[in-house]
Nucleic acid binder design. Structure first.
Lengths: 229, 229
DNA sequence: AATTTTACCTAACGATCGTTCGTTATAATA
DNA sequence: TATTATAACGAACGATCGTTAGGTAAAATT
């Protein structure tokens, strides 16, 4: 409020010397409502809206106009921040990878035991996916096939993250002939698949993650003798 | 060939009485190349092309014109067979569910043991998904959220198939406190996720399915003592 | 032989798509 | 104080979108 009056009193405005202050304020308000805003960067809002729409309706199902409307901005303004729809999509995807990376890194501060480390990572992964949301949904759901230029860049971002689980699983004490690559791919699909059926209120993301890890590690349950081949 | 000449000799064609037979044949050929074909139903071809495109680029990423071009038909012709893009998509999805159902039903003719039955189903599922292809890819990849009318119909088709695994897993001798719902969801995500990383030549679909089932059942491997918590 | 049905076609509708253009008010800098 | 950079805007471009209308020749039916 003070800032608004200040900016009038400095008056680089071409009307200021001709019209009374009351009218100037009116003009300010109109201008504020319609057009140019004072020094405000909507890049973050645009990125958020893009993440939302892309997560909900996919790349092709989301139009530039959808995103712009959601962010309260004109369609053409997106091109001030991003060169193209592809670049915007990549920015969202990359941010999603970083959010995953951060979440998992934070979760693994301590604990040396391999299965515990995997469990912590899984919990962090699922919490990021289901609670934080849109950016991560994109990374979890879209497995780029690598046939377009955009896809190839997406794969590179995704690989950075998958490497984390590669290392986590490398340290796991598994039965000798276990296929660790298949384990990783299967495990990640299982975790990411949760986004497809999770409905708020049923079970907490952390709980789901823990139980999922248990599914993969249950050979040591004390009462495992009920099972048979 | 004989049929072609026959159709000329019956001559309900308005040129037939005016021009010689040679020229009539020429017209036939031209008409064959450009326009109206004799009694040929392209519905199957359209459905195949739709499955292909939808599997490859998704619903929004596929245009009616893409499908028509791939099927060698005019865009408007799709509306002779299907009322709308939505209905075409649903037809593909439904067919995908039926293909899955058939494949799994065929695979389970004998074998009483629960784990073996699940393994057979998994093998059939993955072979259908990775070898047969497009129709199944659609069902595997798209988990409808149920917010549109189309989505709600899709869910109903999908549920018919998931019920099969519900029953398969019900009979499994699992440790007492195992969450069978989570097992099913996780297991199906793991299987369907294979479509995201499978590249021809690495491992056969059947082998992947078998090993995936092993991952979920490995608690009875004889040398499982290497594992620790 | 005349009529109807089938299996398409050509042409076009208005809406929406990603993107570009030129403009403009504010803030930072010289 | 004049200039430049920033953060947008409104209007429009041609392309493409799902869909419809109306036509046409062959086949089936009457």
């Amino acid at each position: 409020m003070v800032g608004l009056l200040d900016s009038i009193s400095l008056t680089s405005d071409r009307f200021a010397s001709v019209i009374p202050l009351e009218l100037a304020v009116t003009f300010m308000v109109i201008r504020k409502a319609i057009g140019a805003r004072p020094r405000e960067n909507r890049r973050g809002a645009v990125l958020d809206s893009a993440a939302r729409s892309f997560a909900l309706h996919g790349y092709a199902g989301t139009s530039i106009r959808d995103i712009a409307a959601d962010a309260g901005v004109q369609p053409s303004s997106l091109y001030y921040f991003f060169k193209s729809k592809d670049e915007l999509y990549e920015a969202v995807y990359e941010r999603g990878v970083e959010k995953f990376l951060d979440a998992v890194a934070r979760s693994m501060s301590k604990s040396d035991q391999p299965w515990d480390r995997l469990e912590r990572a899984a919990v962090a992964h699922l919490e990021a996916l289901l609670e934080d949301g849109d950016y991560n949904t994109l990374v979890a759901n879209i497995v780029p096939r690598g046939d377009s230029e955009l896809d190839q860049r997406l794969v590179r971002h995704r690989d950075r993250y998958e490497a984390v689980f590669f290392n986590l699983i490398k340290d796991l004490p598994l039965p000798p002939r276990t296929d660790r690559k298949l384990f990783r791919l299967t495990f990640l699909s299982a975790l990411n698949g949760v986004a497809g059926w999770y409905r708020d209120g049923s079970m907490s993301p952390g709980k789901i993650a823990t139980k999922t890890v248990d599914l993969f590690r249950k050979q040591l349950e004390p009462d495992g003798e009920r099972t048979a081949r």
